[in-house]
């Protein structure tokens, strides 16, 4: 309760500061719109449905690409952790490509797929798959050997060991990897949407882009706020169950 009050006070202070800077008129309203005009933009775009539609388009691309990224990244990480030959090939590629900012995939995606949904998806997948693979690899390597020994003496072998011991034992790393992957997927999709206009659907990034074209600063700021809110809430919805499980079972520090 006390924390909630404190947080609300802080946000109120920021709003007040913003309003007062606008009132003094240091910058022209074109560069810094008032909080009120941003709110008005949000209100109209929510009521006429554009914001909701854009959010849905973005979320669909994001979730689809992210899920594919996870589904690909997890086995890749398992492979690199298990086989030296994969570590030397896929592992090195993953490490290299993870350092590549995902915006760099956009030209390639455009050439391969044109201005299509697939290009968007491709960029999101490339943004998320490598960090998931690396986190999985890392998690598997950090499984305490004593767990494997205990499991083996109880008769666990091969795939059973992987599913019943290695994967759950690396869960703390997997969750961290999933979070990081999510952040990368989100960033790469925003970059892709701002750069590329796909006619099959306008996402939040495209709204942001149009806001700039129209010199409509309240739209830019409004969409940015929506992006932040979506990022925050999905983080909570997607990951806090996992983190609560980790906290409950492992006794790790409470987060989220």
């Amino acid at each position: 309760m006390k924390r909630l009050l404190f947080a609300s006070l802080l946000f109120l202070a920021i709003l007040l500061l913003w309003q007062s800077v606008v009132s003094i008129g240091v910058w022209s309203p074109v560069l810094l719109p008032s909080p009120e005009s941003v709110l008005r933009y949000l209100y109209t775009s929510i009521t006429d449905g554009t914001l909701l539609e854009a959010s849905l388009v973005t979320m669909r691309r994001l979730l689809l690409g992210y899920c594919i990224g996870l589904v690909l990244g997890l086995p890749l990480g398992l492979l690199t952790a298990r086989f030296e030959i994969c570590e030397d090939t896929i592992g090195v590629i993953a490490l290299g490509l993870q350092t590549l900012p995902s915006v760099c995939w956009i030209p390639l995606a455009l050439l391969w797929f044109g201005q299509t949904e697939n290009a968007m998806l491709f960029v999101v997948i490339m943004g998320s798959v490598w960090s998931m693979a690396i986190a999985t690899d890392n998690g598997v390597r950090h499984v305490p050997p004593i767990y494997l020994r205990a499991a083996r003496t109880m008769g666990s072998r091969g795939l059973h060991t992987w599913f019943a011991v290695v994967l759950p034992a690396s869960l703390p790393f997997l969750v961290t990897g999933m979070k990081q992957s999510w952040a990368f997927a989100w960033r790469s999709l925003m970059a892709a949407e701002i750069y590329v206009t796909v006619l099959t659907g306008f996402g939040l990034g495209q709204l942001l882009h149009f806001g700039r074209e129209l010199n409509s600063m309240e739209q830019v700021i409004g969409v940015m706020i929506v992006i932040v809110l979506i990022g925050l809430s999905t983080d909570k919805i997607l990951f806090s169950p996992w983190e609560q499980f980790l906290h409950h079972r492992w006794g790790t520090a409470k987060t989220g």
């Binding site: 004593i146 767990y147 020994r149 205990a150 011991v165 759950p168 034992a169 869960l171 079972r249 006794g251």
Partner: peptide, 11 residues
């Protein structure tokens, strides 16, 4: 085998 350390699975 019962190990010197408990080696229980935290998950």
């Amino acid at each position: 085998m019962m190990f010197q350390e408990p080696a229980l699975f935290p998950w």
